[in-house]
Nucleic acid binder design. Structure first.
Length: 571
RNA sequence: CGGGGCGUAGCGCAGCCCGGUUAGCGCACCUGCCUUGGGAGCAGGGGGUCGCCGGUUCAAAUCCGGCCGCCCCGACCA
């Protein structure tokens, strides 16, 4: 492409609504433009990257025997009522009515649609297993779209679904899929980890995320040298043994703590450590009140808590409701003497406590030396606090967890029979019995991968594309287009490189060199051929490697060979 | 959903508090000259329903009300 003919609008200034590097750079480098909140157009250069990623995804799906299909985006709402997800997805589902006032949804994912297809198409065990995939636009009405295409309301995703007669068959595809995901990310040049995760709205039990590591990624992952790795919604931990313990007293001692409400205030006032104090967080579900007990230095994982409670709609009590329940102001809630019908869930880490300091359910007072099981009895003990870096690993129980940030690009699930049972999707087994399909589903965020790649590969000057997904292989940059020799050499190289099968961008704009160099750094094409009068007179051509920030001079005749060598590993 | 902020040219912003010429600046864009190895210079030029609707006023970008859009923070507070 010639830059003068190509729609590649770059700009120097950072748009005020962009927050993270990938979003800023995608706008500045002319890859995307926003239409409305969470909805983006891919401009020509950005679309090229998207297509490269799609191609890699297709190749890896095809390689493991997954068959490409294309399902509708517009879904009749009845399907979601059958699966029960109309409620569960709730406000995140984009809904619309047709002219006869029938309710539809824009597909957030396709479990229902594919299960509907399977129940009418797949009748016999002889037809199984099957694995189908597609790449298409999905819609989710996110609470808060942000970070450009990273968390968009309309986005492109590859999703695959498999149908099996046995767990073993599901395991086999699941493993193949994990391998394919690893290869996709490796081929895209993205360093990544596979972690245990929460199944969220999809359902099922065993599931893994593929996270691309990036400084400003939105998810936290915990890992141990023993191989344990999980995201922040899932990661469990053991506490830190060295922490100061609160002694158990014969009977809880009430102490005045006037005006001391927060953990910081109470511990400072009493000269105690946060690890001696237990927080009582009060929540309501659709039909009951639940108290979550966690260490004073811990934070509650609403995801874990909600799962234990068995209700997705948990909500903290308001200040007024807390007063009504406990008879005390916010800041003095505790597990001792709560109404009988209040369910108490204690974090597993509390088992490492001896005594506890808790709120007294009386304004301006706390209790010391409280013992769990004697002074109050929790209805259940479960891990409901978030893991922290430095905690002991829950698997090997020796190592410590370290934390990294990243972007979730892939998520694979063993669904089991969740959808096939609720939607009556069955086949006939070899003994003539009707059985529900055992299913798996496998998502991969394609448009988000573009952003994740930039998040992992950029510097202060701009993007640095991994060679396998770069929108162009080579940028030919004639320093002075007015110089005849420069111009002619540029034209010649442009034609030769294209003839050799490379995607070439020729910066034929009549602009000052500085301007063109800045743009070149910004759009991040791995190789730049710089044509200047001085080098040309010596018969030499400069190749600049964007990632290494290094140039080398080669003879004109060696240019193509040099470039071929650079791209060989991706072929 | 709660809190905060913003909406003035393609982008980044000033002007608004304290109403009053023709609404301004930088970048980008167009024309010409000049310049050509890191976002030059000179001269000229185009581009605005000041988010929308209504109100107050002789007069509204500016004050008031409503609506819409966008962004940030929060939903981890006991």
């Amino acid at each position: 492409m010639r830059w003068t003919k190509y729609y590649l609008p770059t700009f120097k200034e950072t748009p005020s609504d962009a927050e993270i590097p990938s979003h800023k750079l995608m706008l500045r480098a002319g890859l995307i433009r926003k239409l409305t909140a969470g909805v983006y157009t891919f401009l020509p250069l950005g679309f090229r990257v998207l297509k490269k990623i799609e191609t890699i995804v297709r190749e890896e799906m095809d390689r493991i025997g997954c068959q490409e299909v294309l399902m509708p985006i517009l879904h009749p709402s009845e399907l979601y009522k059958e699966s029960g997800r109309f409620q569960h997805f709730g406000p995140e589902l984009f809904k619309l009515h047709d002219r006869r006032n029938r309710l539809f949804a824009l597909g957030p994912t396709h479990e229902e649609v594919i299960t509907d297809m399977a129940r009418s198409e797949l009748k016999s065990y002889r037809q199984l297993p099957q694995c189908h995939y597609q790449i298409l636009t999905k819609f989710r009405d996110e609470i808060r779209p942000r970070f450009g295409v990273m968390r968009a309301r309309e986005f492109i995703m590859k999703d695959a679904y498999s149908f099996h007669t046995s767990e073993e068959s599901l395991d086999e595809i699941y493993e193949k899929m994990a391998g394919a995901y690893r290869r996709i990310l490796d081929r895209c040049g993205l360093s990544n980890v596979m972690v245990e995760a929460d199944a969220g709205k999809i359902g099922g039990d065993i599931n893994h995320e593929f996270v691309v590591l990036a400084q400003e990624g939105e998810s936290e992952i915990f890992s141990c040298s023993c191989g344990y790795a999980a995201n922040d919604e899932r990661a469990e931990s053991l506490g830190r043994p060295a922490e100061v313990k609160e002694p158990v007293l014969d009977t809880p001692q009430k102490i005045k703590t006037p005006g001391q409400k927060t953990v910081e205030e109470v511990t400072a006032f009493l000269g105690a450590k946060p690890s001696q104090l237990v927080k009582t967080l009060l929540y309501k579900t659709s039909n009951k009140t639940v108290a979550a007990l966690i260490g004073g230095d811990r934070t509650l994982s609403e995801t874990k808590f909600s799962k234990i409670v068995g209700d997705p709609m948990i909500e903290p009590l308001s200040d007024e409701e807390i007063f009504e329940l406990t008879g005390a102001e916010v800041g003095y809630s505790g597990p001792v003497g709560l109404p009988k019908d209040t369910m108490i869930i204690a974090d597993t880490l509390l088992e490492e406590f001896q005594g506890m300091i808790v709120g007294a359910n009386e304004t301006d007072a706390h209790l010391r030396g409280v013992k769990m099981g004697r002074d109050f009895t929790p209805n259940a003990s479960a891990n409901i606090s978030r893991a922290r870096a430095g905690d002991r690993c829950p698997r090997c129980e020796k190592g410590t967890l370290s934390v990294q940030r990243g972007v979730e690009l892939g998520h694979i699930f063993k669904l089991g029979t969740k959808y096939s049972e609720s939607m009556g999707a069955t086949y006939l087994d070899d003994d003539g019995k009707e059985r529900p399909f055992i299913m798996g589903c496998y998502g991969f965020g394609v448009s988000r991968t573009v952003a994740a790649a930039i998040e992992q590969h950029h510097d202060e000057k701009g993007i640095i594309w991994p060679s396998s997904i770069t929108p162009m292989h080579v940028l030919v940059l004639p320093v002075n287009i007015a110089d005849a020799q420069t111009r002619n050499t540029a034209e010649m190289l442009y034609e030769d490189l294209r003839g050799a099968g490379f995607d070439v961008l020729l910066d034929d704009r009549d602009l000052r060199p500085g301007y063109k160099f800045k743009d070149a750094d910004l759009i991040g094409i791995p190789l730049r051929i710089t044509l200047g009068e001085r080098n040309l007179k010596k018969g030499m051509i400069e190749i600049y490697y964007r990632r290494e920030d290094r140039s080398e001079l080669v003879r004109k005749k060696d240019v193509i060979h040099t470039i071929q060598r650079f791209y060989e590993p991706d072929q």
